[in-house]
């Protein structure tokens, strides 16, 4: 009760929510920068390794991009696949089965 009344009369001074929001945004960035400096490099290597098990790829034509937004971050993976890769996969399977 007393707390609610306090809130009512002091909304002008409620700077704590601002502090909280500033910290959340700042730390989301700092954690990404300081905590895992090679995150994008690691992701790129591992994604490349997994896809390469099934499709022959040119490692130069794989791009991984990480965008940190205020509320949502996006991971963009762009892999250029050579034409006719489906037949390559089928041939690979047949070879493995035979």
């Amino acid at each position: 009760m007393s707390i609610n009344l306090l809130r009512l009369f002091s909304s002008r001074n409620a700077t704590a929510p601002v502090a909280r929001e500033r910290l959340q945004i700042l730390l989301a960035h700092e954690r990404g920068l300081l905590g895992q400096p090679d995150l994008v490099v690691t992701l790129r290597e591992e994604i490349l390794a997994v896809v390469s098990r099934h499709i022959q790829l040119d490692p130069e034509k794989v791009t991984v991009k990480l965008d940190r937004g205020k509320t949502v971050s996006t991971l963009e993976v762009d892999i250029e696949v050579p034409n006719g890769f489906e037949t390559m996969v089928r041939d690979g399977r047949r070879a493995a089965a035979g």
Binding site: L6, S10, A14, A16, P17, A19, L27
Partner: peptide, 18 residues
Amino acid sequence: PVRAAKGEMLGIEDILEI
């Protein structure tokens, strides 16, 4: 606690969540 209740100071929950 008084300043935190007034929203003038980060609350316990804020700090723990962050």
